[in-house]
Simulated assay, not measured.
Amino acid sequence: MNEHKIALLIDSGTDVPMEIVQEKQMFMLPLQIIYQNETYTDKIDITPREVYDRFSEEIPKTSLPSGEVIHRVLDEIKAAGYKQVFAVTISSGLSGTYNAVRLIGNQDPDLNVFVLDTKNIGIAAGLQAIRAAELIEEGIDFEDLIETMTKEVTANRVFFNVATLEYLQKGGRIGLVASLVGNMLKLNPTISCNEDGIYYTVAKTRGRKKSIENMIQLTEKFIGEAKNYRLAIAQGDALEEGLWLKEEMTRRFPKAKKILFGDISPALVVHTGPGLLGLGIQILPE
Rank of each mutant, 00 (worst) to 15 (best):
G96N: 10
R157P: 01
N99D: 14
E137I: 01
I136K: 05
G122H: 03
A124L: 08
L145A: 13
G126F: 10
R102Y: 10
G105C: 04
D144A: 11
S92V: 01
A155G: 15
L127H: 14
E134N: 12
N112M: 09
V158L: 08
A124F: 11
A129V: 05
L103V: 15
E138K: 12
D110V: 11
A129D: 06
P109N: 14
T154G: 11
R131G: 02
L94V: 12
V101Y: 04
S91F: 02
V113W: 05
A132R: 02
N106F: 07
A125T: 05
G139T: 09
G126M: 03
Y98T: 08
E152K: 14
I130W: 07
I130F: 05
A100G: 12
Y98H: 13
I104V: 10
L94C: 05
G96T: 09
L116E: 06
I130S: 02
I130N: 00
L111I: 09
D144Y: 10
E138C: 03
S95A: 15
F159M: 03
D117R: 11
S91V: 11
L145V: 04
N161A: 06
Y98I: 07
G96C: 10
N156D: 03
D141F: 04
T150Y: 07
A129L: 03
L127K: 02
I130Q: 09
E143S: 15
V113H: 07
I136A: 01
A132S: 10
F160Q: 10
G139D: 06
N161V: 12
A100E: 05
D110A: 11
A129F: 08
F160L: 11
I121G: 02
Q128L: 15
A125K: 06
A163F: 01
N106L: 09
I140G: 03
P109K: 14
V162Q: 00
G122K: 11
V158T: 13
Q107L: 15
N161M: 12
G93F: 05
I90S: 00
L116M: 10
G105H: 00
N106S: 13
K119I: 08
A129P: 01
L127S: 02
I123W: 00
N106D: 13
I146C: 02
A124R: 04
Q128F: 00
F160W: 01
E138W: 00
D144M: 09
P109I: 10
I140P: 06
I90G: 04
L111Q: 13
S92D: 13
F160P: 01
S95C: 12
I90H: 02
R157Y: 04
E147I: 11
R131A: 15
A155M: 08
G93C: 12
A124K: 09
F114P: 00
K151D: 12
R131Y: 14
I140C: 03
T150A: 13
F114H: 15
A133H: 03
I90E: 02
E143T: 14
T97H: 07
D108F: 05
K151M: 04
I90P: 02
D144F: 08
S95I: 09
T154A: 15
N156R: 14
R131Q: 13
A129R: 10
A129K: 11
L111V: 04
T154S: 15
A155F: 13
I146H: 08
T148G: 04
V101G: 07
Q107G: 07
M149Y: 08
